[in-house]
Design a protein around this nucleic acid. Structure first.
Lengths: 150, 150
DNA sequence: TCTAGATATTTGCATTTGCAAATATCTGGC
DNA sequence: GCCAGATATTTGCAAATGCAAATATCTAGA
């Protein structure tokens, strides 16, 4: 077998980590982090989501998310509400401050998208994304049967 | 802009994290972790590397690597040696136990490679890897100028 | 030779992370 | 209406992480 640098998981993590770190540094001055951005992006897509839903779509562990939301609430970015129909459920709503921050983060996220994909034409970019979705789905085959991931 | 699930960094991290977690679970019974595997793989490629070199090729922060190597030394997987020519430098050598573990991990890594790339033909797989290398390289454009990454 | 600045690694420390257990609430069956 | 098991979230805790400071050593120049 070849060198470390030819392994897919390695290449994947390396690229992902680098983008994540770089993005994180960029948004820190705005009081944001990559994870905060993910939550805001998910809520922008659909507001009032429950914790479990957010955890699944952001790929942030639900216990980590609880604490992240604590922080975001203190910053006034989001507000927790109990679902009156089912008191176990907590739904998250963006607050005005959160909308403001989202507006600032959006262009940064788009810029990262553009820079990361520099030199890719539209088709190549779409192929890459499709491949990444496929990879993710392929892992079902190895997942322990008792676990379910979104 | 589209939903979170159409952002490249998100797709990248999601796929990477899932593979990493799954691999980690699989090798835990052997007393290994993903990071341990990375170090062993790097040493398999070339033994006697220095810490900084290993940090660059594995993408593990050098301070994290120091502590990881502490652990690996305790497990008898590797041995630290001072470079006699330059006493600042520490070089790492695989120990017999490390070789044994590497032999066990190799087929697992190959299996993961295969499963992750299920449904990809050789050309598609190579394209994907090339794309990931390109992504990584593209990030140079955004990297703060004072920093240098391997 | 002595010193200032560079380089390599380690250590200190605060944050993030995720598993597992705890808590709260709901549902269906009795 | 009550209980057992399911579901949603939070909390406890220990490990991993990474930045910045500390330490050790080297190099080049005065």
């Amino acid at each position: 077998m070849g060198p470390l640098g030819s392994y897919l998981p390695y290449l994947l993590n390396r690229a992902g980590a680098r983008i994540a770190t770089s993005f994180g540094e960029e948004v820190r001055p705005l009081g944001a982090t990559l994870q905060i951005w993910r939550v805001l992006a998910a809520l922008r897509e659909r507001d009032g989501r429950r914790m479990g839903d957010l955890s699944a779509t952001t790929s942030i562990d639900v216990s980590t998310l609880t604490r992240l939301v604590d922080t975001m609430e203190k910053k006034g970015l989001v507000a927790r509400r109990r679902d009156p129909a089912d008191a176990r459920v907590v739904v998250l709503h963006v607050a005005p401050e959160g909308r403001r921050l989202t507006r600032k983060l959006l262009p940064i996220a788009e810029r990262y998208e553009k820079v990361a994909l520099q030199g890719f034409d539209a088709e190549e970019a779409e192929q890459l994304k499709a491949a990444l979705r496929r990879l993710y789905a392929n892992m079902d085959a190895l997942e322990s049967p008792h676990k379910v991931r979104g």
